[in-house]
């Protein structure tokens, strides 16, 4: 339903609003009247693209997918319909995606870190590579640990000091998540007890840190950048902090504490059914070509920044890069399986 090609015009008057609403209603009506019939398709795409988001509306995936689609329409002239299928750490979205027709008209917008870990740890029967191929990576961001503005802990060292006397409570989005792995690895390296408290999404996790229900939060770094003054980043799970401006110039965790935790990132990537990848190589090629054109478009940089995400996180990568990133995450998940599954 979402016409991503529509960009926000500057202050619309009453007439143009009414005109726009009429046009949108007509477009919505016309588009839903057009039956999906690939038999008549001259070109790909002959109809709307379905975008499956395995988390809720208003979350980070929604934000990034919309920023992408707002420019993608220039390079792939069609409409993009967004569908949200949250549940069971993303399992619902993935299983629902697998039930869709594998015709390259349905794509999943993946958050490679948490979702690949989920696919590895939960009994989904979906396997990366065999069932889903990630054809294009768009953004990558490191995990970070942060606190609310009123927190008494102002540095990573202070937080660790607290941890020497009592367990540290850490709000996370869910257990199968690179940020959770980062905190567990930190606890393991320093001999402190980390209690992960999964709040089931970025927004409630952030709220728990801001209200100081927990000692700190561990999330993808954009969450704290978007929050501005409401978060103080203490450390980044990366070799260096590439976005020091929005993140209180926080140090890399390893540099601050002398640990050697692997860099923990999560990448957004477009995924497609393996069956569609094999059966419709020309469609997949068209998709990849338009995605790469989008990533190279200066408008995409503005769209990303407009959504509050630093453009340094734009990290184009082809299929081999995206699949390698997924594979690395699978290995991490296997290493921390017991802690993440409660077994």
């Amino acid at each position: 339903m979402t016409r991503s090609t529509i960009k926000a015009p500057s202050l619309l008057g009453r007439r143009s609003f009414l005109k726009a609403s009429g046009a949108v209603a007509a477009a919505a009506g016309a588009s839903s009247l057009l039956m999906p019939s690939s038999a008549f398709a001259q070109d790909f795409p002959a109809r709307n693209m379905d975008i499956i988001i395995p988390t809720g509306e208003g979350g980070g995936a929604d934000r990034d997918a919309r920023a992408f689609a707002s420019v993608w329409g220039k390079h792939l002239p069609t409409n993009f319909q967004f569908g949200y299928y949250p549940g069971a750490a993303g399992q619902v979205g993935y299983e629902f995606y697998m039930s869709r027709e594998p015709d390259a008209y349905s794509l999943i917008f993946a958050n490679l870190g948490p979702e690949v870990i989920m696919l590895e740890l939960q009994d989904t029967g979906i396997s990366v590579g065999e069932d889903i191929v990630f054809i294009q990576q768009t953004l990558s961001e490191p995990m970070c640990v942060w606190v609310g503005p009123n927190s008494p802990h102002r540095t990573l060292e202070e937080l660790v000091e607290v941890g020497r006397n009592r367990p540290i409570t850490v709000a996370v989005s869910r257990l199968p998540h690179p940020a959770s792995i980062g905190m567990l690895a930190l606890g393991e390296a320093l001999g402190i007890e980390i209690v992960l408290v999964p709040y089931g999404g970025g927004n409630p996790t952030a709220m728990a840190a801001i209200t100081m229900e927990v000692d700190c939060a561990a999330l993808p770094i954009t969450n704290s950048i978007v929050l501005g003054d409401q978060s103080i980043v203490l450390g980044v799970f990366a070799d260096e902090n590439v976005a020091p401006d929005g993140t209180d110039n926080a140090p890399a965790v390893n540099a601050a504490l002398g640990t050697s935790i692997p860099a923990l990132t999560s990448s957004r990537a477009w995924g497609v059914h393996r069956a569609a990848y094999d059966a419709h190589p020309e469609r997949v090629a068209r998709l990849v070509e338009s995605m790469q054109a989008t990533l190279a478009d200066p408008d995409y940089v503005s769209a990303v920044e407009g959504a509050g995400v630093p453009s340094v996180f734009i990290d184009p990568g082809d299929e081999s890069v995206a699949m390698a990133s997924a594979q690395a995450t699978i290995e991490l998940a296997r290493r921390y399986r017991d802690l993440l599954t409660g077994s």
């Binding site: 979402t2 529509i6 926000a8 015009p9 202050l11 619309l12 609003f17 609403s21």
Partner: peptide
């Protein structure tokens, strides 16, 4: 509101 997003994204943010 989700269904009407095309409309709300097309107009000025105040509206």
């Amino acid at each position: 509101i989700i269904m009407l997003l095309p409309l709300t994204l097309a107009v000025d943010v105040n509206i």
